[in-house]
């Protein structure tokens, strides 16, 4: 997914963005094809829409009216056109516009994913730097071992364990739901503004972010150790810069280039993987909505969810590449050459 661009004085920002946009459109069309195939091949859309007593003739008529007899390309084109305006039809199960359903569930998922992502990044970078700088002390060893457990335990198990310890045994935190929510603007209902909302967020956020945190931590540690061996770090030390300047000003900044990329991409996975966490904690987000739609073969919802996740990935990819561009001057438009 990630493309690495070589330092190229001739390339400029605009060409870069255009190229990435074209790539993004291709990715989205591919996913749209898969989503469209769901409609065609998973269940019979007509059967899901009509009652038992509808006659075959009526069904054929409906099929024609819905354009299901049109050539494949025409149907796909219509699907893409409607999807791009956010129209995925009506949910078979809930008889509501799919987009409305998703939008009402999205804030819950985004809040959970964002908090998990921030936790994962902050603790991942913190632990990674610590274990790289304090190699061999007992705390580093403990963190590393704990992180191994974090990587190897399945998400639902971590969720269940957390619920057992903190909700059932200690009774410190709620075990399910989103707590009290507050309406902000037209679309957004947030749990971040109430105490019960924040308390409800803690366990699911840890569950969802733990794997990403260990991943980021291991990446930061490995990158940091690598960077600490480089000549420019040796030279920075030889110039008498303080340990703090060397470690955080020079080493960490170079470490962050790949870490930002990975973390950004992980945010996509966090949203995608929130399905499991949302199920374990009965979190009313799009993940839970998707799981239910799969159970009832609610194809429009499944298709919309698929497209949504793809869109999230594509947008994140784009943003990450731009961030990359901002952090690493070697990828930037060559100002020096431009001025000459």
């Amino acid at each position: 997914m990630l493309t690495v661009y070589a330092a190229d004085a001739g390339s400029d920002m605009l060409a870069f963005i255009l190229r990435r946009l074209v790539q993004s459109v291709i990715v989205m069309l591919t996913v749209a094809l898969v989503a469209f195939a769901l409609f065609r091949f998973v269940g019979d859309p007509i059967a899901s829409m009509v009652g038992q007593e509808t006659t075959l003739a009526e069904r054929a008529e409906l099929r024609d009216a819905l354009g299901l007899n049109d050539p494949f390309v025409v149907q796909f084109g219509k699907f893409v056109a409607r999807a791009s305006t956010g129209d995925f039809g009506i949910s078979y199960r809930l008889q509501q516009p799919v987009m409305e359903l998703i939008l009402s569930r999205l804030p819950a998922t985004l809040e959970l994913a964002l908090v998990s992502g921030v936790l994962a990044f902050v603790f991942g970078v913190g632990f990674g730097v610590y274990t790289a700088l304090r190699r061999g002390n007992w705390l580093s060893g403990t963190i590393m071992t704990a992180s191994l457990i974090g990587v190897s335990l399945p998400t639902f198990l971590i969720g269940v364990l957390l619920i057992w310890v903190f909700a059932v045994e200690l009774q410190w935190l709620p075990s399910f739901g989103r707590g009290e929510v507050v309406q902000v603007g037209n679309w957004w209902r947030t749990g971040l503004l109430t105490e019960s909302g924040r308390a409800s967020l803690i366990l699911p956020a840890i569950t969802l972010g733990l794997y990403q945190m260990t991943l980021i931590m291991r990446l930061v540690r490995a990158e940091m150790l690598e960077v600490l061996r480089t000549d420019y770090i040796k030279f920075a030390r030889a110039r008498g810069l303080s340990n703090r300047a060397v470690h955080f000003g020079h080493a960490l900044k170079n470490t962050l280039v790949p870490v930002i990329t990975i973390t950004g991409l992980q945010l996509g996975s966090i949203i995608a993987f929130s399905i499991i966490t949302e199920t374990v904690f009965q979190w009313p987000g799009v993940g839970a909505l998707f799981i239910n739609s799969v159970r009832f073969v609610d194809v429009p919802v499944m298709a919309a969810y698929l497209m949504l996740i793809a869109l999230v990935f594509v947008v994140i990819n784009l943003v990450v590449d731009l961030l990359y561009y901002a952090v690493d001057p070697r990828l930037r438009v060559d100002r020096a050459n431009a001025r000459h």
Partner: peptide, 25 residues
């Protein structure tokens, strides 16, 4: 010793391509 490095004893390394931090001017 850190205060001596750079201030009283300077050092030039072999490879200028890798001696400078690429992310700073």
């Amino acid at each position: 010793m850190r205060r001596i490095r750079g201030r009283r004893i300077g050092m030039v390394f072999q490879d200028p391509l890798t001696s400078l931090n690429p992310l700073y001017t």
